[in-house]
Write a protein that binds this DNA or RNA. Structure first.
Lengths: 205, 205, 205, 205
DNA sequence: AATGAATGAGCATTCATTCAT
DNA sequence: TATGAATGAATGCTCATTCAT
């Protein structure tokens, strides 16, 4: 009893702790060397644990990558939903989404690299990921656009889901460029630029 | 030009032919199994040649992937430049670019998979590719936007290169979705939709 | 004796009990999966104890196999000696031995599998086992044959120890066949058949 | 042409050669260390080839063990059938079989160890082997006994297949003892002893 | 140029054993 | 005694690359 209380207060429960440690270590290693070039031994060394210990928490190297995605996506979506609460205006909701998208990814460059690069390197992964959290994300954007159309704010001649993909694609490209850029610059402000064009287009009025 | 004519006339199997055969075979194999899961032996078998022969034309498996990219990008850019000749209007030039982008990739699904998926799976590759033809491509778009701004057609409060990335990102997402989609639909028409938003935005006028 | 009574009375789970539990569990697991494919964790799970507990009773996985053999062999030999008491006729003694051999092994199929299969899979084990209880067993048979020769009942042109091996080999083959057989049949009656040939040969008189 | 003729005369065709080399090396290694304790690298080193080369000729370590058995059994059975040709007397046929059995195994001690020990260490293997050549062997013995019964030479109150197992078991035990023995003695003469008992029994007439 | 047999470095995963609690 | 999380050595197999022919 005492112990479990203490554990909860002082550290996380042992299991969770080490699982997260491995996930964080793997993110770093994958970001640095790429998924296929990362050895499980690298991850273990980075985490300061024995090779075998990794397998007490994950069934395989693949599962680690999956878990990184699942965890980050879950957190992103639930945080996003929470932050969107109370925002009614579709324009403001999209603004919030775009800002969160860039903000979250620029907060953890390693995670961003895994998301933008490592997760894209196989159709197998991509298909699984599309089927998973990513579809949820697109749907949130799409629903917002739909409500903007219903409210008479957005043009109705384009399907919401396509609009959503366009916005996502533009933001995604911003992130990828930021990662690959040799210069270091703040990512988040790009959101506003993307939104200006997404909302108003490049044409002079 | 001269070389290819000669090859054809003299009927030498000539480096060029087999090189292309390998490149085509590799594209197919990479698209089907992914780069890391493809064996050089698979490529050789697909090409109907011996394993060792691959190494008479390419230094490594990596170099094959590079060459696929280089060749396709060169062709795309040179074909693009040619087709853009005589088109003065920035709007029309961008329309042409967007249509070509989707058209070329939908013409060869295997190539598209390699471009959208396999080439994205490593920062190493991505950095090299960014430095290569991809930068040229972005520049062409960017220059066109610049000329549109100079001509007073496009808004000037956004940097051309950022605009270019936004357009590219949107188109790129269309292609990726098309590849991963279980349904089969024509990709090219998506260009017009992207352009409508890129030019005019989603806001109701 | 005394110890087992004490254990039972005082109801101490006592070393002995758990040791036997582990031995029984290991026999089952080895019989099902084979020695090399059995994990210590499997044995522990089968016994309903923690992995580490196994090592409080046995130094190693090897020692468990040894102990299975030693214990069963000790029991078999001491039970055998007891049952042979009072039987004077060499023929009857051999009959008893052959019957006991097949009876004991058919009583516990898992144990039989371990004896016929798992214990045979390494020269190291086999040599150790030959040096252990198995030699005692052969000696008992051999001595009986010797006394039959001395009594003028058995032919004297063949060395008792060789005779013993022949009898053992024939019985052993009966057991192995019984274990591997897909059909289920009573093993013990085979003893009589073996003895008929061992005693009288296959030639028509 | 010339080359293939030469190859045939001077060496065996390359493939066969190396396959046999691996088989011979593996037999030696398995006999020395046991199947489970032998590394594929040990086999390769013994054969003087690279680790990977083993896999050009065999799918797995298991398959090597299988092949050792299959090849030896095929050779033994075909050689045996040939040597039995023209021998009509069932007694003489059994004598030939028993002698061949011990002779062949004593000719190659490593092979004998693999047959007597390594092949026995797993029910999986044993079942497969029972289903394979071993059953053929027992059948040959059994058929001979049957013909002896039909000819009125052998007693008819015992099923031929059981007789066959008894004879096999006795011979098998001779081989196992010979292998495990610290002293070196000729194995083949044991055949006659076994036959004396098998034919005439141990009882004094 | 072409072949394809041979190479051998490389790595994910397993599991007997230990030890802090 | 008992636990079970942690350890880390051990190994079968793959595959990019080479090279003798």
């Amino acid at each position: 009893m005492v112990r479990s209380v203490r554990t909860t207060i002082q550290n996380r429960p042992a299991g969770g702790d080490k699982r997260e440690l491995i996930l964080r270590s793997a993110t770093k290693v994958f970001a640095e060397r790429g998924f296929f070039n990362s050895k499980v031994a690298d991850i273990a060394k980075q985490a300061g644990i024995a090779d075998g210990t990794v397998y007490l928490y994950f069934k395989s190297k693949d599962e680690i990558l999956h878990s990184i995605f699942d965890k980050a996506m879950d957190e992103f979506i639930s945080e996003g939903k929470q932050k969107l609460e109370g925002i009614e205006s579709p324009v403001e909701r999209l603004r919030k989404i775009a800002n969160l998208h860039l903000e979250k990814l620029s907060e953890d460059r390693d995670m961003a690299i895994v998301f933008q690069v490592e997760l894209r390197g196989s159709t197998k992964f991509m298909e699984e990921f599309s089927a998973a959290g990513f579809a949820d994300y697109l749907e949130i954007i799409s629903d917002t656009i739909k409500s903007g159309q219903d409210a008479g704010e957005f043009r109705t001649d384009i399907k919401p889901i396509v609009c959503a993909k366009i916005l996502f694609g533009a933001l995604d490209e911003m992130v990828t460029n930021w990662i690959l850029s040799k210069q270091s610059y703040p990512l988040k402000p790009m959101a506003e630029t993307v939104l200006q064009i997404f909302f108003g287009g490049v044409m002079k009025q």
